Simulated assay, not measured.
Amino acid sequence: MIVSKSDVGIVLMNLGSPDSTAVPDVKRYLMEFLMDEKVIDYPYLLRWLLVGGIIVPGRAAKSAEAYRSIWWEEGSPLVVLTQQLQKAVQHDMEMPVEIAMRYGNPSPADAYDKLLQQNPHLKEVILLPLYPHYAMSSFETAVEYAQLQHRKKNCKFKLTIVKPFYEEPDYINAMAESMRPYLQQEFDQVLFSYHGLPARHIRKGDPTGKHCLKVEDCCHVASPAHNFCYRHQVTRTTELVAEKLGLPREKWAISFQSRLGREEWLKPATVDRLEHLPKEGVKKLLIVCPAFVSDCLETLEEIAIAGKELFIHSGGDSFTMIPCMNIHPLWVQSVVKWCKGIVAGDEKMLVKQ
């Protein structure tokens, strides 16, 4: 049944991408991304010296080359796939659906303008950050950026935020069913590779100040900290998906990718596991990246290209990256169901404000 509520709009918000693979565009994107105080949470001057003086000058050309290796004719895979999700969701909704990015284009302000052009009397916008798990460098910064642009534009409509959905049954089912066809082949292990974070971020995000990475087996010991703990939430997602798929415990593992810098990050690192798994007898590997709902540089290049090369070079026989959910029908149905439920007055998916 198609929902009709003329005073509501929807914004699907993803991470973002450079406008092109040209080095200046990639440099601009990296500066915006890495200068975010919730990504590299150092004092401004130190962050500026580190990002502008060391990281971006040394990384921009290499990153541009990586983007070129995965770029599509239509543009950035992440942006194109988010647009495809928008169209698929819009097909089942009468309310207008737009997209926004935390970094790059289109911005939340662009999305608000498009919604207001369609309905100048808009009363509410449902913002769905496309991050399953809570982290200050992903969900938190996206929400705060969307709220900041909402205030700067003096928007009259209410901004309603959908909370992280890491253990929502619809998400778990969609994730599991998107993976299931790949489990028909012979494999030794499924590696759930999540975007990594500095361990300091986990401790910093703990509102109790005494639980995360301090209590033994902290991810399985009940605590209010779990509402803000990325490590707990990715563990929960993995366990629920593995249970849904009937994967025995010895057939799956968790790792963390995209490590930057020398400080302590969440372990084990994906690159370390890819290098050592063949020596441990894991020759046929399936790898999936549930922190991303849309394929992007971190999945298509870091895992499917560089990760595969490392695993095979280290003695592996076969390596299959399971794509993100992208526009899998069950994922699209989940987004539509959540938005329809919110419009109908169901608040269980919302951030309490």
Rank of each mutant, 00 (worst) to 15 (best):
M1Q: 07
M1V: 03
V3I: 10
K5I: 05
D7V: 00
G9Q: 03
V11E: 05
L12F: 07
M13K: 02
L15T: 12
G16D: 02
P18C: 06
P18M: 07
P18Y: 07
T21I: 12
T21M: 03
A22L: 00
V23T: 15
K27Q: 04
R28V: 00
R28M: 01
Y29T: 05
M31T: 09
K38I: 02
I40Y: 05
Y42S: 07
P43S: 10
P43M: 09
L45F: 10
R47F: 01
W48M: 09
W48K: 15
L49G: 08
V51A: 10
G53K: 06
I55W: 01
P57Y: 05
R59S: 08
W71H: 03
W72T: 04
E74D: 15
L78H: 06
V79E: 06
V80L: 09
V80N: 13
Q83K: 14
L85H: 14
V89W: 04
V89M: 07
E94Y: 04
M95K: 00
E98V: 01
R102P: 09
R102F: 09
G104S: 08
N105W: 00
P106L: 00
D110P: 01
E124C: 03
V125G: 05
I126R: 07
A135T: 01
M136E: 00
S138N: 08
F139N: 10
T141M: 05
A142Q: 10
A142G: 10
Q147I: 08
R151E: 04
C155I: 00
K156Q: 14
K158F: 03
K158E: 15
T160G: 11
V162P: 11
P164N: 06
F165P: 12
F165N: 13
F165T: 11
E167V: 06
N173E: 11
E177T: 15
S178W: 08
Q184R: 15
Q185W: 02
Q185P: 00
H195W: 07
G196S: 01
H201F: 08
G205S: 13
H211R: 10
H211Q: 10
C212W: 00
C212Q: 04
L213F: 03
K214C: 06
P224C: 02
H232A: 06
H232K: 05
H232W: 12
V234W: 04
V234A: 11
V234D: 06
V234P: 07
T237Q: 02
A242H: 07
L245P: 09
G246A: 01
G246F: 02
L247M: 12
P248I: 12
R249G: 02
A253G: 15
Q257F: 05
S258K: 11
S258Y: 13
R259I: 06
E263K: 11
W265Q: 12
L266E: 10
K267M: 11
K267Q: 14
V271F: 03
H276Y: 08
P278Y: 08
P278C: 03
E280K: 14
K284Q: 11
L286V: 07
D295I: 01
L297P: 10
I303M: 14
I305Y: 10
G307F: 04
L310F: 00
F311K: 09
S318G: 08
I322A: 07
P323L: 04
C324H: 04
N326H: 09
Q333D: 15
A344P: 01
D346H: 12
M349K: 01
L350M: 08
V351Y: 05
